[in-house]
């Protein structure tokens, strides 16, 4: 055997053994257990993270960046008080792939409406009653949780402030859980009552990409900015549910569910 062929023989042997050797399973960590009273808060909210896996660590960011092992360690409660904060969390441990990233958005509550009229939700998803859309509760991804109001049709909400207010932004927390036939709304329109002309005036709207495939179960905050606010005490909100589930989904052509749990008025 020449030197060359000897080398290639050993190389082949190496390849042979790396193929024959039982390849090792490499597993990914799961994300940690996050605990917080609600994603909506008045002054501040405290978030705790738990992950009982030996020799692991939890890392987080508050600026939307993907957490790495260099990011802050989540070993004590994190206090959140900014108007909008995106908390991103991942777990790490030697010998495992880092977990997927979990992101939770936290929102400071806005102005409370004096009265808020919404249609009665589906009997299965009644939420906690009248106050559900401004009770500061919600933001979990379990559609059976009592914080969600579930509708099988579009929803019109009438908002009355006690005084004339220039509303600049409306945020509506919706659920996206496509396996459960729950989709983001197809469009949102905001109207303000124009006392001068005695009619509803369209002042803002948005068109979420509700038909796009989203395997994750998540909260989707719908933010509608009002470019030219008007001073009025009555607002109307029309949230249109997705009328036809897209073709890639088993529920193709049927109406989607619309789940909402909180309105934030700025």
């Amino acid at each position: 055997m020449s030197k060359n062929s000897k080398q290639s023989f050993f190389a082949a042997l190496l390849v042979f053994f790396s193929v024959m050797a039982p390849a090792q399973d490499t597993f990914q960590l799961a994300p940690p257990l996050l605990r917080f009273p609600s994603i909506f808060f008045d002054k501040s909210v405290q978030v705790t993270a738990e992950f009982r896996q030996p020799e692991s660590s939890i890392h987080y960011t508050l600026n939307g960046w993907i957490p790495t092992e260099e990011s802050s360690v989540f070993d004590k409660p994190v206090n959140i008080n900014k108007p909008v904060t995106k908390l991103s969390v991942r777990t790490f441990a030697k010998g495992y792939l880092p977990s997927e990233m979990v992101q939770v958005n936290f929102y400071k509550m806005g102005k409370k409406a004096k009265t808020l009229r919404a249609p009665l939700p589906h009997p299965k998803y009644l939420g906690t009653g009248n106050d559900a859309l401004q009770d500061g509760l919600g933001g979990n991804t379990d559609h059976n949780s009592k914080t969600w109001l579930g509708y099988q049709d579009s929803v019109m909400i009438e908002i009355e402030f006690g005084d004339k207010t220039s509303m600049e932004q409306i945020m509506i927390n919706t659920l996206e859980s496509q396996n459960a036939w729950i989709f983001q709304p197809s469009s949102i329109s905001v109207y303000g009552w124009d006392y001068l002309f005695g009619r509803w005036r369209p002042i803002g709207g948005s068109r979420p990409d509700s038909a796009e495939r989203q395997p994750e179960v998540r909260c989707a905050m719908q933010t509608v900015n009002i470019p030219k606010p008007i001073k009025t005490d009555r607002y109307r909100l029309i949230i249109r549910s997705l009328q036809e589930i897209p073709a890639w989904h088993p529920g193709k052509g049927k109406p989607a569910w619309l789940f909402i749990d909180e309105l934030i008025l700025h």
Binding site: D25, F27, Q28, L29, A30, L33, E50, F51, R52, Q53, P54, S56, T91, Y96
Partner: peptide
């Protein structure tokens, strides 16, 4: 196995959950 380390607080078992996606 693939779950959180069992944890008893005052003899009450804490919530268990997956930690490794095995």
């Amino acid at each position: 196995l693939g779950g959180s380390e069992p944890w008893y607080e005052n003899e009450v078992l804490s919530e268990m959950y997956q930690t490794v996606r095995a």
